[in-house]
Nucleic acid binder design. Structure first.
Lengths: 347, 347
DNA sequence: TTGTAAGCGTTATCAG
DNA sequence: CTGATAACGCTTACAA
């Protein structure tokens, strides 16, 4: 059986080349490679062999065009992947990646919250059909020129931020409850005077955690609550510590809205010779892995990143498969992990 | 001018719809939208207006198929995005993302070094044409079934690992030099007995840093060097500290291959009442941002992540544009940042 | 079970 | 400057 040697073009062999090599039609190649059972075992073997010999891999653009799907899920991040010690998003990303890849999807990453161009870019991705679904870690769903991610028709899930009131399925933690429980625990230890070191005003997490803290103290006339606003970063933690040092009398327990804040806060106190937890108890938020190894080790509200990530994957998959109903709001509990930075106040 | 109202199909308007709406041919629409100047200002305006009205965005799969490019750059990561406190990769990713997006590219993320399936997945991405280029942060270029990323024809750049001997352009730091300088600095402070807390045997960074340390001590007959192998993680740092505590006489200066190791090492020492830097000096590697806020703050070899990232972008862009020559090896200097964890030994 | 052929939405070529 | 048309590589009716 002689066969004309044809040059395989740069960019790899096409389905035509394989068909020729195996002596069958392109449709048969397609079937042999994608719908097992719809082709005789014998020809299937021949096709596979030919495909192997030619190093054939189906062109994704052609397939996507034909089937109208891309298998790509867009991850929209709110800027840097992690600030300081906190790795909540990075941890979730690993799980999401693992699970989605196992299901045959790919992950496209986009940062946002930076410039208008970034938003435009994300929308373009969605409207050009490169994306079968999107997971957003940003409180603001991208929107520009009257078009929005939400209106793109692309299935959308929100992670960590509750956007269920806009009809976007959201997987969140019970920030508020966890914050309340934390304060309650501190009250139980004997603390009465608190400092809340918060995030940016209006930020979803700030609002939730602040509310939780206030709820816990609402009916305690014997307690006080000071407030120190900021970002979630180290610098804000240092600044809060400065304010703390200037205050009098000083609170005995401090709730920080992030581990970064808590770490910087403690450091600043150490510089002034104030020891944690002997003189002040400090709690962070995020459950950063480094917390265990600090001196003192950091008490923190730990977010169950793996579980959240799995729920998100489940939600986006259901949505992309046009499954019946998807929960609009899924809550996964966070809980306080007590370590050395918390103790009973000196009486 | 009456026009038949046609239903725009789900998935958005196509170029045909726009052509009909504007009363021109599809080719004209394509030109108006992509090659400005090849169409009269008047019709261009009409096309743009029509496209806008219909909310048209060109289908990416169709375009990719036609032009043979995707504008997607694959990022191959060696597993989790960051271990512990170190954010070297995360920091670089932000810069790479920003720059590539500004140039019109998208970022596809793939984790590897986990299972065979992950490698197969990456190769599939490359061979199916979804990827115009790839940046790998893994020492091992994916390879399975005789096919490899390197052989896929996809432009490839290695970050942090020197793969130039395989013909892959690499952007790395001078790990070896930085390690040597660090030890030399410690010698200058008066230290003579060292402990090197290393990474996995054979790992590129381990080899380089270890070599640098040994080079610095090669001609110093008055110095000693102990060795404690491990991973780059917290646990290995703790384990190394255990070994350190059991040793006698103890080294007075410790070089850790990662900040995570250094942090855990110091913590374990604190548990035994040994103070840093009073009794031992400790240096980490990575320049983690949290280092500044530890007690004591951590001396560390800082990698210039932004610069590395920019060099990588430049290299991959050049490669994708078939630019003349691309440097096979670009070295960006890392350097020691001294903080509180280092001091002169007690005499 | 297999082959033929249409068509996915673009862009590029070639006429006009 | 613009229009008609081919082609990119694949999947999927439909026919044989």
């Amino acid at each position: 059986m002689s066969r004309a040697k044809r040059e395989i073009p740069a960019g790899g062999a096409s389905i035509q080349d394989v068909a020729r090599e195996a002596g069958v039609a392109t449709s048969t190649v397609s079937r042999a490679l994608t719908v097992p059972g719809r082709v005789s075992e014998k020809t299937r073997a021949r096709v596979l062999e030919a495909a192997n010999r030619l190093g054939y891999t189906a062109n994704a653009a052609a397939r996507n065009l034909r089937v109208g799907r891309s298998g790509v899920v867009l991850i929209v991040l709110p800027g840097p992947l992690n600030a300081g010690a906190s790795q909540v998003i990075a941890e979730m990303l690993l799980v999401i990646d693992t699970e989605l890849v196992a299901l045959g999807y790919s992950l496209l990453i986009a940062n946002i919250d930076r410039q208008l161009n970034a938003e435009r870019y994300v929308l373009n991705l969605a409207f050009s059909g490169v994306t079968d679904g999107a997971i957003i870690f940003s409180s603001i769903p991208p929107e520009v020129d009257g078009r929005s991610l939400a209106s793109s028709g692309v299935p959308l899930v929100s992670a960590l931020f509750d956007l269920s009131d806009r009809g976007i399925p959201s997987v969140v933690t019970n920030d508020r409850q966890a914050a309340r429980d934390t304060i309650t625990h501190l009250i139980g230890l004997g603390h009465r005077n608190f400092l809340y070191v918060g995030g940016p005003r209006g930020n979803y997490h700030e609002v939730e955690r602040h509310s939780g803290v206030r709820e816990a103290l609402a009916e305690r006339a014997d307690c006080t609550l000071a407030y120190s606003p900021g970002e979630f970063d180290f610098a804000s933690g240092s600044a809060a510590a400065e304010a703390f040092l200037d205050s009098s009398p000083r609170p005995t327990a401090v709730f920080c809205c992030s581990d970064d804040m808590a770490i910087a806060f403690i450091r600043r106190l150490a510089d002034s010779g104030i020891r944690v937890p002997d003189e002040v108890s400090v709690v962070g938020f995020d459950g950063s892995s480094v917390g265990t190894y600090l001196v003192p080790s950091l008490s923190s509200v730990r977010q169950p990143t793996n579980l959240i990530a799995r729920k998100i994957v489940q939600a986006i998959i259901d949505l992309m498969k046009r499954k019946t109903e998807v929960r609009l709001r899924t809550v996964v509990p966070s809980s306080l992990v007590i370590r050395e930075s918390v103790a009973a106040p000196i009486r």
